[in-house]
Simulated scan of single mutants.
Amino acid sequence: MTAVLNEPTTSPKVEDRTHLERAKAVAEIVEAEANAIEEGATITKPVYDALVENRLFWMAVPKELNGMGLGLVESFEVIEELSRADGSTGWAFMANSLSTSLAAGFLAPQGQQDLFAHDVPGITAGMILPTGSGRKVEGGYVVTGNYQFASGSAHASWIGAGFVVSDEEGNPLTTPEGGPVCRTAFVPRDEAEFRGNWNVWGLVGTGSYDYGLTEVFIPEEHCFDTFTTEAVRSEPLFRFGLLGIGVGGHAPVALGIARRALDEIVKVATVKGRVGYPTVIADSEIFKLEFAKTEALYRAARAYVYEVHREAEDWVNAGNPLTELHNARLRQSITWVQEVTATVTNFAHRWGGSQSFRNPTALGRATRDAAVATQHLLVDPMSMVDAAGAIMGEYGNGRS
Score class of each variant (00 low, 15 high):
residue 6 N to R: 08
residue 8 P to M: 05
residue 12 P to Q: 04
residue 14 V to I: 15
residue 17 R to M: 13
residue 18 T to H: 11
residue 27 A to R: 06
residue 30 V to I: 14
residue 31 E to A: 14
residue 36 A to L: 13
residue 39 E to K: 11
residue 43 I to M: 05
residue 46 P to R: 01
residue 47 V to R: 00
residue 53 E to S: 09
residue 53 E to T: 04
residue 73 V to N: 06
residue 77 E to A: 10
residue 80 E to S: 11
residue 83 S to V: 08
residue 84 R to A: 10
residue 86 D to F: 13
residue 88 S to R: 13
residue 89 T to H: 03
residue 93 F to G: 08
residue 94 M to N: 11
residue 97 S to G: 05
residue 102 L to A: 03
residue 103 A to M: 12
residue 104 A to G: 14
residue 104 A to W: 12
residue 110 Q to K: 13
residue 113 Q to D: 14
residue 116 F to N: 03
residue 119 D to M: 08
residue 122 G to H: 09
residue 124 T to E: 01
residue 124 T to I: 03
residue 126 G to V: 01
residue 126 G to E: 00
residue 128 I to A: 02
residue 129 L to C: 06
residue 143 V to F: 06
residue 143 V to C: 09
residue 144 T to I: 10
residue 149 F to V: 06
residue 151 S to C: 05
residue 155 H to R: 08
residue 156 A to F: 07
residue 159 I to M: 10
residue 160 G to M: 06
residue 164 V to E: 15
residue 166 S to F: 00
residue 166 S to G: 12
residue 167 D to L: 03
residue 175 T to M: 12
residue 178 G to F: 12
residue 184 T to Q: 03
residue 192 A to R: 00
residue 197 N to D: 15
residue 201 W to Y: 13
residue 202 G to W: 06
residue 209 Y to K: 01
residue 209 Y to C: 09
residue 217 F to C: 06
residue 221 E to H: 10
residue 227 F to D: 01
residue 231 A to V: 13
residue 233 R to Y: 11
residue 239 R to L: 13
residue 242 L to C: 02
residue 244 G to L: 01
residue 246 G to Q: 06
residue 248 G to S: 04
residue 249 G to E: 06
residue 249 G to R: 02
residue 250 H to A: 01
residue 251 A to N: 01
residue 253 V to E: 09
residue 254 A to P: 01
residue 256 G to N: 04
residue 257 I to P: 00
residue 259 R to L: 08
residue 262 L to M: 11
residue 265 I to E: 01
residue 273 G to E: 04
residue 277 Y to K: 11
residue 277 Y to R: 12
residue 279 T to V: 11
residue 280 V to T: 14
residue 280 V to C: 09
residue 289 L to F: 12
residue 296 A to I: 10
residue 297 L to H: 08
residue 298 Y to M: 05
residue 302 R to K: 15
residue 304 Y to M: 07
residue 309 H to V: 07
residue 316 V to L: 15
residue 316 V to D: 09
residue 319 G to E: 13
residue 327 N to T: 14
residue 327 N to K: 15
residue 333 S to T: 05
residue 336 W to H: 15
residue 336 W to G: 15
residue 336 W to C: 15
residue 338 Q to F: 02
residue 343 T to G: 08
residue 346 N to I: 05
residue 349 H to N: 14
residue 354 S to Y: 14
residue 358 R to K: 10
residue 358 R to Y: 11
residue 363 L to C: 02
residue 364 G to C: 12
residue 365 R to P: 00
residue 366 A to W: 02
residue 367 T to M: 09
residue 373 A to I: 04
residue 382 M to F: 15
residue 383 S to V: 09
residue 391 I to K: 04
residue 394 E to A: 09
residue 395 Y to E: 10
residue 395 Y to W: 11
residue 396 G to Q: 06
residue 396 G to L: 04
residue 397 N to W: 14
residue 397 N to R: 15
